Simulated assay, not measured.
Amino acid sequence: MSRHIVLSPASRNTTTGMIGVIDPRFRIICTIIFAVFIVSVTSWQAVVATIVVAAVMVALSLPEWRKTLRRVLTMDGFIFATLLLLPFTYPGDTVFTVWGHAASQQGIYQAVMIGLKANAVIFTVMAFLGSLGSTDLGRGMMGLYIPTKLTTLLMFTVRYIDVLHHEYLRLRQAMRARAFHLRSNRHSWKMTGYLVGMLLVGAHDRSERIVWAMKCRGFHGHFHFTHLPRPAKSDYMFLLVMAVILVMLITLEALCPPLI
Rank of each mutant, 00 (worst) to 15 (best):
M1N: 09
R3S: 11
P9S: 02
N13I: 03
N13A: 09
T14M: 11
T15H: 12
I19A: 02
F26T: 01
I32C: 05
F34N: 09
A35K: 01
A35F: 15
V36W: 02
S40G: 13
V41H: 02
V41Y: 02
W44E: 15
A46C: 10
V53S: 03
V53G: 00
V58W: 05
S61N: 13
L62C: 10
P63G: 07
E64H: 12
L69A: 13
R70D: 03
R71G: 14
L73G: 00
L73E: 03
L73Q: 08
F78Y: 14
A81Y: 04
L83W: 09
L83F: 10
P87T: 09
F88P: 04
P91K: 06
D93W: 07
F96A: 14
T97G: 02
H101Y: 09
S104L: 06
Q105D: 06
Q110Y: 15
V112D: 05
L116E: 08
K117T: 05
N119D: 10
N119P: 00
A120K: 12
A120L: 10
A120T: 08
G130A: 07
S134I: 13
T135I: 15
L137T: 13
G138T: 09
M141R: 04
M142A: 09
M142G: 02
G143I: 08
L144R: 07
Y145F: 15
I146W: 00
P147F: 07
T148G: 02
K149W: 05
M155W: 07
R159D: 05
R159A: 11
Y160Q: 01
D162L: 12
V163K: 01
H166V: 07
E167S: 12
E167C: 02
E167N: 09
R172V: 00
A174P: 03
A174G: 06
F180P: 09
H187A: 15
W189M: 14
T192P: 00
G193I: 08
Y194D: 12
R206V: 00
S207I: 01
I210E: 07
I210R: 06
I210Y: 04
M214F: 10
C216E: 06
R217I: 09
R217C: 06
G218F: 08
H220M: 11
H222D: 14
H222P: 01
P231E: 03
S234M: 11
D235R: 00
M237Q: 12
M237A: 15
L240H: 06
A243Q: 07
V244L: 15
I245E: 07
L246A: 14
V247N: 04
E253L: 08
L255E: 10
C256T: 15
P257M: 05
